[in-house]
Simulated assay, not measured.
Amino acid sequence: MYRHLFWDLGGTLVDTYPALDDAFAAVVREHGHEVELIEVARLTRRSTGEAVRTLSQRFGIAPERFEQANAALKKRWETDPAPAMPGAQELMARVHAAGGLNLVVTHRDRASATDLVQGLGLEVDDLVSTCDGHPRKPDPEMYRVLLERHGLDVAECLAVGDRPIDAEAAHRAGMHAVVLEDPEMPVDDDAEHQVSRLEELAGLLGLD
């Protein structure tokens, strides 16, 4: 039975996708084109970088324009953060009550990630970031750092993410993974579990 959760941040613990989709769609429209929001969403669910490349090539818009929109969005989140994913606070509290740890593995810089989880009232026990000098996922180094730091049995750990790279990184660290996905936009990944709501994780943790 799993006890400890290794959380991705954006798109998993924090509901960042709607604002990102809107921002990229706005860039397309500002350049005189039309794009359905669902088209943008399908791209961002795979990766922000892929969304930038695809939209840039399709509409003949410089990639920098999308990157600027993304940077402006992150700046806005410093004072007006995206909301926590539904069910996140409750599930994390239940993990703590059962003696488990909530650990965050993120590409976001440490200061903004820490401010974000604290501002949203998320009970995080530890957090590692690429700005600590670790390579980006799917490299498993950040997961391994947390495993070693807390002396955890990998069999009791479950990585929670929303993209294939989250599952890949977790597998390379020796742990199982679950992907949070929108049923209308399924993700092609190798995770052992898929859920559409965070509440569904309770069963995997024996918390039902």
Rank of each mutant, 00 (worst) to 15 (best):
F59T: 04
R197K: 13
V117L: 05
T130V: 14
P81I: 01
K74F: 14
I61M: 05
E50K: 09
V160P: 05
T130L: 08
E34M: 11
T16W: 02
E141Q: 12
G100S: 13
A82I: 01
D125S: 13
K137T: 05
G161L: 03
F66V: 04
F6K: 00
I165W: 07
A69R: 08
D189H: 14
E64A: 15
Y17I: 02
A177Q: 04
I38K: 10
E34T: 08
S196F: 07
P186V: 07
A155R: 14
R94E: 15
V14C: 09
E90R: 14
H193C: 10
E123P: 15
D208T: 08
A23I: 00
A25K: 04
E141N: 05
A51V: 02
L207P: 09
G161K: 00
D126N: 04
P81S: 12
L205H: 08
A19D: 15
D125F: 02
H96S: 13
G203I: 00
M142I: 00
L146Q: 03
E200Y: 08
R197F: 08
I61Q: 03
R53Y: 06
C131T: 15
L205Q: 10
A93R: 13
H176G: 14
C131Y: 09
E78P: 02
D115W: 05
G49D: 14
H107F: 10
L180W: 02
L55S: 11
L9E: 06
R42M: 12
Q68H: 12
H134T: 01
K75F: 11
W7Q: 08
E184W: 03
G99T: 02
E141W: 01
F6V: 00
Y17D: 13
P86S: 11
A51H: 05
H107P: 07
D166N: 06
L91T: 04
E168S: 09
Q118M: 06
D188G: 09
V154T: 07
E50Y: 09
L205S: 13
L180S: 10
E30S: 14
A93M: 11
L91H: 08
H31E: 15
D190R: 08
L127Y: 06
L37S: 14
P83T: 00
S112V: 06
T114N: 10
L43C: 10
E39F: 06
P83I: 00
R29S: 12
D189F: 01
A155N: 13
E181H: 11
P63K: 05
E168P: 01
S129V: 02
D208C: 11
I165V: 13
A173Y: 02
L37A: 15
D166H: 01
M185F: 15
R163I: 01
E50A: 11
G10P: 02
A23Y: 04
I38N: 09
V195W: 03
A170F: 01
A62C: 07
S112R: 12
W77F: 12
D153C: 11
F24G: 12
L122W: 03
T130W: 03
Y143I: 01
D153T: 02
E123G: 10
R46H: 13
E123Q: 14
P140W: 02
F24C: 11
V128S: 00
L205C: 12
V35C: 13
R108P: 03
A177D: 06
L103M: 09
L158R: 01
R163H: 07
H96T: 03
P140M: 06
F66R: 06
A159T: 00
G10Y: 08
G206K: 06
L101N: 10
D115I: 02
E64R: 11
L180K: 04
E148L: 01
D126P: 03
G161E: 06
A202C: 12
